[in-house]
């Protein structure tokens, strides 16, 4: 009896271990997926490193060429493209928005998760509801507003409207809820700390993992913003996506230069991604479970 049942148990354990093993087919599938993911990025570099004469050849070029830096130089050297300015503008807009979103979202998330006040649930519901509203809906009056206050063509027009988002508040609330024990806040209060002091020295440090992920997300999102920027900015003071569109529309005859532009616009994001990839993945997956 005992012998038999022990054997069954061993078999079950073996089988369950095997259950989660990756077969060679799994690896092949995943490697194929990664190749598909990476190929357009690689090919972007191929064209960016070639001459224009290579761009239209058959079979299409598949190997890196030697003109990458020369082409990049032409992108930055092109007075009409304003590419350097676009990079600086995007870096400013993306960092300011990221920091501001993190700060205000943490503050509001903390209030929603840990402070008690009248109308809290209703107010939180409103925030969740705003997440459903597409931004594009409002760009016509928003543009009219910008004209009124003379912000068209100015960088702040693509920063100020996005300084805090419903998504950010909601995310920070979810995190604060489970990451900060109430006793911690209570203890600080007994010590006589003001609410802001509690936030700044107790809550915010504890929120840091979520804050970092939110900051990175927001940075990428602002970096990729296009439609509103296209409507409100001007060609001589663009952000990166705008400058790319401009490059694509104007230098259609010079695709090795246009592709160098796409590479320059993508590399900062890729660097952020490679450095913080683990955190970004963690953030997406954690967020997925909570939502």
């Amino acid at each position: 009896m005992t012998v038999l049942s022990r054997r069954t148990v061993t078999r079950t354990v073996e089988r369950s271990a095997r259950l989660w093993e990756a077969s060679p087919l799994t690896y092949i599938t995943l490697i194929f997926a990664i190749v598909l993911s990476a190929f357009p990025l690689y090919w972007m570099l191929v064209i960016a490193s070639r001459t224009n004469q290579d761009v239209g050849s058959i079979p299409p070029p598949l190997v890196l060429g030697q003109h990458l830096f020369e082409n990049i130089g032409r992108v930055f050297g092109n007075q009409n493209a304003h590419f350097a300015k676009a990079l600086v503008n995007s870096a400013i807009a993306s960092s300011v928005v990221a920091i501001s979103v993190v700060f205000f979202s943490s503050l509001a998330g903390f209030a929603f998760a840990k402070l008690r006040f009248r109308g809290r649930n209703a107010l939180l519901l409103i925030i969740v509801a705003t997440m459903m509203v597409p931004v594009q809906m409002g760009i016509i009056p928003l543009y009219m507003l910008m004209v009124k206050i003379h912000w068209t063509g100015q960088l702040q027009a693509v920063i100020v409207p996005f300084l805090v988002t419903g998504f950010g508040v909601f995310m920070m609330r979810q995190y604060a809820e489970q990451a900060i024990p109430d006793e911690l806040i209570e203890a600080a209060r007994v010590d006589g700390a003001s609410t802001f002091r509690i936030f700044w020295s107790v809550v915010f440090p504890a929120l840091r993992p979520a804050a970092a992920v939110l900051a990175l997300f927001q940075f990428m999102q602002t970096w990729n913003e296009f439609m509103w920027n296209f409507a409100v900015l001007t060609p001589d003071n663009p952000t990166v996506q705008y400058a790319l569109a401009q490059l694509n529309g104007t230098y259609y005859a010079d695709y090795s230069m246009v592709f160098s532009g796409t590479a320059i616009a993508t590399v900062p994001l890729l660097v952020v991604f490679i450095v913080f990839g683990r955190q970004i993945i963690g953030g997406i997956m954690e967020g997925a479970i909570k939502a």
């Binding site: 600086v88 870096a91 400013i92 807009a93 993306s94 960092s95 300011v96 990221a98 920091i99 501001s100 993190v102 960088l155 702040q156 920063i159 840091r208 993992p209 804050a211 970092a212 900051a215 990175l216 940075f219 450095v275 913080f276 683990r278 955190q279």
Partner: peptide, 20 residues
């Protein structure tokens, strides 16, 4: 790395604000 991320983010935005 998380702390580093935060520090970098804070630094980056400070630079951003100053530049702005």
């Amino acid at each position: 790395p998380l702390r580093r991320a935060t520090t970098i983010a804070v630094a980056a935005s400070l630079v951003g604000v100053l530049a702005l």
